[in-house]
């Protein structure tokens, strides 16, 4: 017991857990809209597209502070998104293909820059690779403060534009027909998705960031049909995964934080998919079997009558 208290009074753990929790909450909220708009995998593309921006920011400034690097990530993430939209608009290449293409090409460019930086004389580049896999133990109190600051602004924006986001998530055409400028709202939403991903890169890394965006929303969706409850649940699922994952990874040796968070989150997702009342797989399977049985029985009696 005392070791557990000791654990929770550990300053580094507190920071990391707080950071992961905040990140989970944010991705739960923003991810809900991304998933409902069927843009789940955009997050995956953006997080990969951020890599060259991180490298370029470092090359240009020579500074390895989070703010500078994340600004670079933000810009290249946005450029990647822009390319995806343009490719789909100006050719008959499918969205999925454009996504995978930009994701891998930007990542390739990032690798080229990374290897270039590594060969610079006495370059202090050691931390750059952390963005690929994430390293939450390197999270500083300033990083978490940034997260909370930017996160609060985003939450306020979601609150202010709730009606618009709701319309956009469910029926874009209808939203446009009643005079909402869907383009602006869309842009705002995409911007917030990119921002959330960038905030998460340090903690869980390029590859796993998209999971944090998708998982809480998918799990929450199973328990309710109402958007406000869904967003609220997603926020809870996200932050719980973040905190629990962090604690597990610090208690158990050799458990990397990012993957552990994803593992905890996946458990919540699987549980929801299987057991959510009225929607879950177990429920549906039971209902389907009963219905099939019922249909067959009814068919038999009808035949008997004829």
């Amino acid at each position: 017991m005392s070791s557990l208290i000791q654990l929770f009074s550990d300053y580094t753990l507190q920071i990391v857990a707080l950071g992961s929790g905040v990140l989970g909450l944010l991705s739960g909220v923003i991810g809900s809209f991304a998933v409902l708009r069927k843009q789940s995998l955009l997050g995956d593309a953006i997080s990969h597209a951020a890599l060259p921006g991180i490298c370029l920011a470092f090359m240009l400034t020579g500074i390895k502070s989070s703010e500078v690097l994340l600004l670079g990530a933000l810009i290249s993430g946005l450029i990647g998104t822009f390319f995806i939209i343009k490719i789909v608009n100006y050719s008959n290449i499918k969205y999925d293909n454009a996504l995978a293409f930009i994701l891998s090409i930007f990542f390739g460019l990032g690798l080229v820059l990374l290897t270039y930086i590594q060969k610079l004389p006495n370059a202090n580049q050691a931390g750059l690779k952390n963005f690929i896999f994430g390293q939450s133990s390197a999270l500083l109190i300033q990083d978490v403060e940034w997260m909370i600051g930017i996160g609060s602004v985003m939450l306020v924006l979601v609150f202010l534009f709730w009606k618009e986001f709701k319309l956009l998530a469910f029926d874009e055409v209808f939203a446009e027909s009643i005079g909402f400028s869907t383009q602006k709202i869309n842009l705002l939403l995409s911007g917030m998705i990119v921002l959330t991903i960038i905030l998460g890169l340090q903690t869980v890394g390029v590859v796993l960031m998209s999971a944090l965006l998708i998982g809480p929303a998918v799990a929450a969706r199973q328990w309710t049909n109402r958007l406000n409850i869904m967003v609220f649940l997603a926020a809870i699922f996200g932050s719980v995964s973040g905190i629990v994952g962090t604690v597990i990874s610090s208690v158990v040796t050799k458990m990397p934080t990012g993957p552990t968070i994803v593992l905890v989150l996946s458990m919540i997702v699987l549980f929801s998919l299987l057991f959510a009342p009225g929607r879950g797989m177990i429920w549906t399977l039971y209902l389907r079997n009963r219905q099939k049985h019922y249909l067959k029985e009814k068919l038999k009696t009808e035949e008997g009558a004829a």
Binding site: Q291, K292, L295, L299, E303
Partner: peptide, 12 residues
């Protein structure tokens, strides 16, 4: 008899 999900689409 064909059913999509739980709804019979074709019946007998």
């Amino acid at each position: 008899t064909v059913a999509y999900d739980l709804q019979p689409v074709l019946w007998n």
